[in-house]
Design a protein around this nucleic acid. Structure first.
Length: 557
RNA sequence: UGGGGCGUAGCCAAGUGGUAAGGCACGGGACUUUGGAUCCCGCAAUCGUAGGUUCGAAUCCUACCGCCCCAGCCA
């Protein structure tokens, strides 16, 4: 966003256009979602491209709802889209538009095409239209209604609008070429009859323009210079050009780029909606979903998503990006900004034998060692503590450098302690460690500079019992776009994509608010969930910290 | 099969006739009050294949192969 010199083929085209004073050197883009579901990372990429390019070239980017299908759209989605795009860090000022607000203009233009003999009302059924269209190898045939007079077409089209016909009874079609090798040019449907209430236009209309008829003209109306869209619209470009030429109106330039595919997840609104509707996840904002709202709830910072979108680039090759890449940017951002806090996931009781039983010390612990200006927080210390069970081994393997009988470790910014004894229950289970602390190491400082590992800890009596939701990838398969025909995405759901557990956390966390992000020291980045209450704080694991120890341990087994 | 696109390391991706950037992942080391971070170093590409043009080709030409999209009154 600052000194980016990174470019791509789209930016190059735009630079070229500016140089040639095309569109008076203006740059005006738009992000045109349909309000029929929630936005996901794939949309985030498009948002970053459209808003980002406008920003870079000193231009503007509109937000436009492409709302031409009343059967699928709703205000809920319009609102969610705005919330999500703002959260991502972009702003459209007062330029929120709706394709449905152009319905009247679109209708007038359709009438104009009818008058020019370039559009006609067809009485064929949907099935017949499909048959008449032919296929890849067979040219289409003209509809028997293709030869209607302008007067007849005008009359019929008016009556379509007036509501005289049933759904599916007639459509308005562009009269282009039924034998065209590009299927989109075989007299595409411009209007269909839908006796449906539109979430925004109410019952004002019973004929609705198709996307193909509405999209190009909407861009034209808004004076868009560069209509950036995904690859699948490449073959629609000739059609959009045809409409614009027939209408002799302002002509934006369309450029297509590859949409984003992420490993271990799905990116189609249809599949996401199915997962939500069928209860495989808790909602559109389930932290396991790649939706913007899901990532927000999971704890992904918007800056990380933006950095990710910048890094993956813009190209035309179909790609599948490893989710590790996204997580890298999440960690990168959180490492620099997330306050550190101590929470013990699997508590092992530690008693400091030479520390006064009735004493409590308050230590000032760094909020974020990465950020010298972040200050400190207060953490209470007492003679009974919890440390991570995995930080102790009775019989430590070769490369294990943490606590073990007779060994010394540092408790983060508190004291160095040495393990003196191991207490077990009847089953031989370790239930407690008896340790001593070195009073000369207050704050974790050693006079002789001896090197010991540092552990996180929490005072038992002050600890907060919190819920922690551990998330993992939603699907076990990397490429969900190429599953076998006899399988469904549900077959690849990761059974352990969510595991609910608890932790003993330092008391400062009692003040945490939903949406607050932290690093559970040495463990994970987390984010307070909206389900959180004062009685029961709930944390979502955004992403675990990387761990070379985990790799070593894995190799040893 | 007709049309439209795309093929550069495990995954993204620069490169636009002068001898293959960068990021992710991975491996090693230094440092460390996070086995994190940081810093070094390493890693891997006969540039889909085969021909051709050229002093010189990932870049130009030809053929072939592979992958993606299109036969909604969805967007």
């Amino acid at each position: 966003m600052t000194d980016e010199q990174s470019s791509d083929f789209i930016r190059e085209i735009i630079e070229q256009d500016i140089e040639e004073s095309r569109y008076d050197s203006r740059v005006h883009t738009r992000f045109p979602p349909e309000p029929n579901g929630y936005l996901h990372v794939g949309h985030a990429k498009a948002v970053c491209i459209n808003f980002g390019i406008a920003e870079e070239f000193g231009g503007l980017c509109n937000l436009r709802m492409d709302d031409t299908d009343p059967t699928k759209e709703a205000w809920e989605y319009v609102e969610a889209h705005q919330r999500d795009i703002r959260w991502l860090g972009f702003d459209w000022d007062d330029r929120l538009f709706y394709a449905s607000d152009y319905f009247e203009q679109l209708y007038d233009w359709a009438v104009e095409l009818v008058k020019k003999g370039k559009a006609y009302v067809d009485d064929l059924s949907p099935e017949q239209i499909s048959v008449y269209r032919g296929d890849f190898t067979t040219p289409g045939r003209d509809s028997p209604y293709r030869g209607r007079t302008v007067e007849e077409n005008l009359d019929l089209f008016e009556r379509m609008r007036a509501g005289e016909f049933h759904e599916g009874e007639r459509v308005l079609r562009a009269k282009i070429d039924m034998t065209h090798p590009n299927m989109n040019m075989r007299d595409p449907v411009m209007y269909r009859i839908l006796h449906e209430t539109h979430y925004k236009q109410g019952d004002a209309w019973c004929i609705y323009p198709t996307y193909d008829w509405a999209h190009g003209q909407s861009d034209s109306i808004e004076g868009i210079t560069h209509s950036l869209c995904s690859l699948e619209f490449e073959d629609h470009r000739p059609l959009y050009n045809w409409f614009l030429e027939q209408l002799e109106i302002y002509h934006p330039r369309q450029i297509e780029f590859a949409r984003l595919n992420l490993s271990h997840t799905v990116m189609s609104k249809r599949l996401l909606k199915a997962l939500v509707d069928e209860g495989y996840v808790v909602g559109w904002d389930d932290p396991r979903l790649p939706t913007i709202s899901g990532m927000r709830r999971r704890g992904y910072p918007p800056a990380a998503i933006r950095a990710f979108c910048e890094e993956i680039g813009v190209a035309k090759a179909a790609s599948l990006i490893d989710i590790d890449m996204l997580e890298h940017f999440v960690r990168d951002e959180l490492n620099r900004n997330a306050p550190r806090v101590m929470a013990v996931m699997e508590p092992l009781r530690v008693v400091i034998e030479n520390y006064p039983e009735d004493q409590t010390e308050i230590f000032e612990v760094d909020i974020n060692p990465e950020d010298p200006d972040s200050g400190t927080r207060e953490v209470p210390f007492s003679n009974v503590l919890y440390i991570e069970r995995g930080d102790f081994r009775e019989d430590p393997p070769k490369k294990f450098h943490r606590l073990a009988p007779g060994r010394e470790v540092r408790l983060k910014q508190a004291y160095l302690i040495t393990c003196r004894d191991v207490v077990k229950d009847q089953d031989g289970e370790i239930v407690e460690l008896r340790c001593t602390h070195d009073p000369d190491t207050r704050g974790g400082v050693t006079a002789d500079g001896r090197y010991v590992r540092t552990l996180h800890w929490v005072s038992a009596e002050h600890a907060l019992d919190v819920e922690v939701r551990l998330y993992d990838r939603l699907f076990t398969r990397a490429d969900m776009g190429s599953i076998p025909d006899d399988k469904s995405v549900v077959d690849y759901l990761n059974p352990s994509s969510l595991e609910v557990t608890s932790a003993m956390a330092e008391p400062s966390l009692a003040a945490a608010e939903p949406g607050d992000r932290f690093q559970f020291y040495r463990n994970s980045y987390v984010c307070v969930d909206p389900d959180s209450t004062a009685e029961r704080p709930v944390f979502n694991r955004t992403v675990p910290l990387r761990s070379t120890w985990a790799k070593i341990a894995e190799k040893m087994t």
